[in-house]
Design a protein around this nucleic acid. Structure first.
Lengths: 213, 213
DNA sequence: AGCCTGACTAATATATAAACTGTTCAATCG
DNA sequence: CGATTGAACAGTTTATATATTAGTCAGGCT
């Protein structure tokens, strides 16, 4: 959790802001309200955070920390093969995104607003999750399930392939189960790709069936 | 082209409307302006189209027709294997979307506005493109490159896996070449998945390396 | 008759004024 | 003297009034 770096007062401010962000959204909570909740003046908030947007950024960093911690449990699941963990990772990520979108809509709205002003936060989020996924892939390399030479590159490819199921744009279109089934279809296919590569090696350099241009 | 069904006058209206949609966008072109361009009264437009939104829908249908015709050329490319055609299909689709996003922004804006009111149009678009992709897959089945038992299902999976490169949400983040390279990475992997399946059969039923649950 | 017009209306959009909010900082407090 | 305040300012949001537009229809034109 990134909050451990924070002053006690800063944590209090963040907690008060988080409550209001979740209930009323970012734009509808005012600095004065946050200050009132903390029994201080609005001006004093600026001794602890440079701006309102920075409070929101810290709020999102906490959300991200929780989500990454959650995804990291996939790594330690006993009796699961690396390939199964790849599937677990994306299904859990989808489930977490889907649930947050539906029962914490204000948090989602806040993330979107923040990312418009601070795109770097989205990249950091993706990278943090990518690190977990990369560990799964490395584990597969170690036990011989996979034969991936460039783990970060393949991590990015997997994130790209699963993008549709991690962005809330389509959470309206279909239900939980339909989307999860489609995600499973994508994962089936990329895992078969891994299987092929681990049997034949040399991935990426020559595209097996359909060489480029 | 869907315009062949149309009355001569309707075509004239659609042409005038299209010019203004492309130049000024949907909301900034008025029915009176379209009528003036056609030397008729605004009321008369409603003899040919039920509403302004229906003119926009027809405009988007024409766009879609052009795009699908364009993608269909991939099917007839000589000397390309089915796997290469899968790659050609998605790279061309990406290029068309990327270019239209950048040099016909008003058309993109119009598509977005329309799809909010007429989501069915987006589904029809995806299905129309899916039919072309499905023909490529069937061709691969016929010549032995692929061994796909449920072509429509795999078509959907491929569209899902490539979604990130067909939705304009990320066209801001990276340049042309970076995105195309990432798309190629995804295609490499799914084609390797096809290679594995064509060598082993039984795709979908048992997920090769990482069986479900 | 069949096609077309253009004034009319309800609804939407734009422009303008009023209120509010993020942020600063000179003054106050402990 | 460091920590805190709250009035002041600039920028933005909201509320209100004005104007425009999508869509209708009773009549006119050919």
């Amino acid at each position: 959790m990134p909050t451990t770096n924070l002053d006690e007062t800063a944590r209090q401010i963040l907690a008060a802001a988080s409550r209001r962000f979740l209930h009323y959204g970012y734009k509808k909570t005012t600095m004065s309200e946050i200050a009132d909740d903390c029994n201080m003046s609005s001006g004093n908030l600026y001794r602890y955070f440079p701006s309102k947007l920075d409070i929101a950024e810290m709020f999102v960093r906490v959300l991200r920390g929780e989500q990454v911690d959650n995804l990291r449990t996939v790594l330690d699941a006993p009796g699961r093969s690396p390939a199964q963990k790849v599937r677990d990772f994306f299904l859990l990520k989808f489930k977490l995104a889907y649930e947050r979108f539906h029962d914490k809509p204000k948090a989602f709205e806040l993330s979107s607003e923040l990312i418009l002003e601070r795109p770097k936060v989205a990249l950091e989020w993706e990278n943090a999750e990518g690190r977990v996924l990369g560990e799964i892939l490395s584990e597969g390399n170690a036990d011989g399930s996979f034969a991936i030479d460039d783990v970060p590159a393949i991590t990015k490819i997997l994130q790209n392939a699963a993008y549709r199921f991690t962005s809330p744009a389509l959470f309206h279109e279909s239900g939980d189960e339909v989307l999860a089934a489609e995600l499973n279809g994508v994962i089936d296919l990329v895992l078969d790709g891994f299987a092929w590569r681990s049997a034949h090696g040399e991935q990426g350099k020559t595209a097996s069936l359909g060489s480029r241009s």
